[in-house]
Design a protein around this nucleic acid. Structure first.
Lengths: 209, 209
DNA sequence: GTCTATAAGCGGATAGAC
DNA sequence: GTCTATCCGCTTATAGAC
């Protein structure tokens, strides 16, 4: 609720370290399951010191969510009506898979929050995400009307992209058991990107496009 | 670790109620975040009484996971080499989406467990799931060799099916914000099933099949 | 088998010295 | 700004009567 303290260099550094540590722990255990102790230790400081910067555990949780959300939505914002659909979708899907490799914890953080009913994220979903999605749905509809995409349901298409790209971050533990690989393996990363891209483009691009 | 008590009718009933309540709470908060109190209340009994049947919270958690896993894997087991690929995949995908409607909590339970690194499920993944997947991958490969499927990566195909079908259970809160609908809405359920089915079949069935 | 009461310990948050 | 010490509520689990 209250303001985060400190604007000195060392203070800023500590805040960054706390937010990073918070992301790691919250993305694994959610708000309830996370231990403040664990976050403080990971950030390399004492628990009271952490609480000097963030007044409470849930305040820190909200700060982590908020910081991560912008980065999370960046690739989607880039989809532009004037772009070529194939190129725009390719760029979006490619960057989403890359994001699952570079920021799996961010993906898992939102996954846990949403699985729990998005108690802290409801506002952001309704206030920020919903209008953003509405505008992108309009773009997809225009492309469909122009015959540049097959007449698929735009929302289901977006869900499909999210599901398949984020799956490799959220379910990495299962994927590693079944394949022995992670996205950090260059060959596996490449085959993943290709498989996801191909299945979606096949489903939405008109024949011969 | 220890054995679950009681084999009387009333005892069996209580055990069922506890397992059901455990699924509801664990699927929302995971092992750490779940409160034994809450599970007991939902099961309509006192906490000590719950602990009479299951010695500890994590023992109950493992029991819930175990009970749910079989049901979870049932549709996959049915995929048969002698079946027609289109029919087999249609049946599998259709039943997975139906399962996301009828048992969203089961889906979310595994999602949370796997996001957390599958600490309790590692054994089951390696011992039960891995061999099962290996056998289904072999079937998919045979179909590809016979020209009945496009030459896609079988594992990525399975991941794609899991991702897109389970997404509607795991991210239901987000989907409800964005569409105003849940899978309990008959029209939305139908459009979801159609969209998921079409995108995957389009991606894997040879042209004209 | 089920309850009330309670032990035992964890974990979030604060006090106050430095 | 950071630490040690500590408070206190909450949660798991047990004891023991019924």
């Amino acid at each position: 609720m209250s303001e985060v303290r400190s604007k000195t260099r060392i203070g800023e550094e500590n805040i960054e370290r706390i937010l990073d540590a918070g992301l790691t722990v919250f993305s694994r255990f959610g708000l309830r399951g996370a231990r403040t102790d664990q976050i403080a230790e990971l950030a390399g400081m004492s628990k009271p010191n952490l609480l000097y910067y963030f007044g409470s555990k849930s305040e820190l949780y909200v700060a982590v969510l908020k910081r991560t959300l912008d980065m999370w939505l960046a690739p989607l914002r880039k989809i532009d009506a004037s772009a070529d659909p194939r190129e725009a979708l390719t760029a979006y899907i490619t960057s989403k898979v890359a994001y699952s490799r570079s920021h799996p914890e961010a993906s898992r953080l939102f996954a846990i929050e949403i699985i729990q009913g998005a108690p802290m994220l409801q506002g952001a979903l309704k206030g920020d995400l919903a209008p953003l999605i509405a505008s992108k749905v309009a773009i997809l509809k225009r492309w469909i009307a122009q015959g540049k995409l097959k007449p698929v349901d735009p929302l289901h298409l977006i869900f499909q992209i999210w599901a398949t790209t984020q799956h490799y971050a959220d379910f990495a533990a299962q994927i590693e058991v079944l394949t022995g690989k992670t996205l950090d393996d260059p060959a596996f990363f490449k085959s993943t990107q290709a498989a996801v891209l191909r299945s979606i483009l096949d489903a939405v691009l008109p024949k011969g496009a």
